[in-house]
Design a protein around this nucleic acid. Structure first.
Lengths: 201, 201, 201, 201
DNA sequence: CATGAATGAGGTTTCATTCAT
DNA sequence: TATGAATGAAACCTCATTCAT
């Protein structure tokens, strides 16, 4: 974001989400975003440094909001908390299909090119997940030895992949979100238990 | 367009995989692919109808080859077969990191835009998976009633998402492929059991 | 447009001189001039019709002021008067380096596009010079025949070119203005004598 | 210049000279240059890196050619040689009015932004002039002491200014080139003698 | 079959100017 | 009077595709 905070910037981001969803980031035209947001093309540049910065801000906003939701989850049981976290993640995306589509296609750009400050929310969310995951491990594993970070990250990544895939399914089928979510969580929980039960390599 | 059979086309596809991996499909330049393949820019168009068709052929070739591998898997136990299928899928991608990166970034284009004939191999692979999955269900579920197709597809999609994510992890970390694969399969198997054990909605 | 008299307009012109000096007329931004002048962007248009009119006014102001100085020069000897005129011209520019830089880069626009009324001062200055020049000729040339106007204009133009070049040198070197001026006048006087001594073509 | 030497590049430069002459560098459109050169817009970029590089090449070509001409001038008498040098300089510009106009308006950009290699010809020409000037001084000044470099540069700059101004006059009037040149040289020679006769400051 | 020079449509970005406050 | 947020036209440059050789 450049100069003005506030509503207009958010409207541009919403418009961008829908245009990105339809055309993908690379093919998306700034002028289309402007039209969709009901502003002049040039106005985009009053709020964002360029097309890339729009994408960055869009994801940054998403993760920041998600981080807030994550913070509210205080389920003591780590497994249930992980369940809730994945559920919130899924729901946030499921509730905004335009953004969800953009997430599926272009989130890797955010990870690759966004500058660190804009990744704050993302890092926070990942950290929440990791902590819950480690607690599950500690709970399971009476011997007390911690799993290697790589091992945790890997398992966590696979869970994310499951959420991602369930979301993709949701977007391309008529199955109700609730059913998709349930199935996803069911498989995820089983996966977590398998991952934390296994001897760490 | 008219695909001249032979080596040159395959070399172009290999070159394309590396260029797509580095730049992504949208930013990739046809001339860069040509240079990387050691042919003139114009020659590309003797073998492919355009940039889009290169992508299509690249994925088509991948799925065709994978379909061949899938056919070889005749493990009688459906769960083990599913395990082997996911393993083969993972290994094929893990063994060609350039293509893997392209798969992660641009496979959705293949699904969205490729013409049906070029999807043959893909459809075959999916079908192999679905059949194994259904057998697992049938095996578990003594009542004999089939799960809804949607339910099967969803579970399958989530499994794919897990493979996908584990692959992404592999590309971005130093963890050995074997370890990633083992963990992925471990979680996948658990997920499958959970998915097939649950009452179908 | 309607030039509100007063200080603000002059401040804007001063600001413009510095911005033009730094960026050149074409690259100069109106908003930069406004900022430099300490007024809002829109206010510029209360005093001037547009960017072009700013340039026009800037040069117009310069020539008007110079015309006033020229009027004060009443040296009877025409050669000495010419010497003084060139000196005053040089000094006025040397004393405002921002404007001088703009003069060197963009004065041609003034000559090409300014409307006649704003060229009043310029015309007056040129006329002063021409008159002195003709007197020198008349003084030299006992036969009394006047040189052709073209011939006079040409010689005068060349003198202006010398002043211009000496000014450019001044801006790009550390040589003191006094030395530059002396050398310039020395060469100019020699040039004038040569020009007026020669048989007119 | 980028890839191909040869005719096309030169034609583009000629077209650029005419467009720059008409519109000035900043307002000149690359597409207009392309049209004027009879090539596609994109072709420009096969030969030049951009609009700026066209300007650079245009001036570079001019100075390189002039340097060749300068080399041919072997008049032993330094004053006459200087006379010839200024004459050649004038004639080269007078013979290509489009370029001359561009020279008058935009040569400062070349000096400010061109990279050193492209200034080679320019430096050579200036050096030729300086050497002749110093010889004149040495010839005049029997005491043998050299004038300060700054002093030489200044005088030389003023001479260039005279040529420049005479050229401008030529472009804006109907006076024959020969007459303008003669008058210019007459004044220049007188100026040189004045400059070299004066005690060096 | 093979080439690569040539093309030109199209997108991002800038900035002079306006006008509601 | 004064402001500065908003506008949208315009231009540089890229690159997929073609075609003469």
């Amino acid at each position: 974001m450049r100069k003005k905070e506030g509503d207009k910037a958010n409207e541009i981001l919403n418009a961008a989400a829908s245009v990105f969803a339809r055309d993908g980031f690379d093919k998306a035209q700034v002028s289309a975003i402007a039209t969709s947001a009901g502003v002049g093309t040039g106005s985009i540049y009053l709020y964002f440094g360029g097309k890339g910065e729009i994408l960055q801000s869009l994801f940054s906003r998403f993760w920041d909001r998600l981080a807030v939701e994550m913070t509210k989850l205080e389920t003591p049981d780590p497994l249930l908390r992980l369940n809730d976290q994945l559920g919130v993640f899924f729901e946030q995306l499921a509730s905004d299909r335009d953004f969800a589509r953009t997430y599926l296609r272009d989130h890797h750009r955010f990870l690759e090119f966004a500058d660190p400050p804009s990744k704050r929310g993302y890092v926070v969310c990942v950290e929440f997940g990791r902590r819950a995951f480690l607690e599950v491990v500690a709970h399971q594993d009476r011997t007390g030895h911690a799993p290697s970070p790589a091992s945790t990250d890997l398992s966590q990544a696979i869970l994310f992949g499951g959420v991602r895939a369930s979301l993709e399914f949701l977007l391309n089928n008529d199955t109700p979100a609730e059913i998709v979510k349930t199935r996803m969580l069911s498989m995820a929980m089983a996966g977590i238990l398998a991952a934390t039960r296994d001897p760490q390599p």
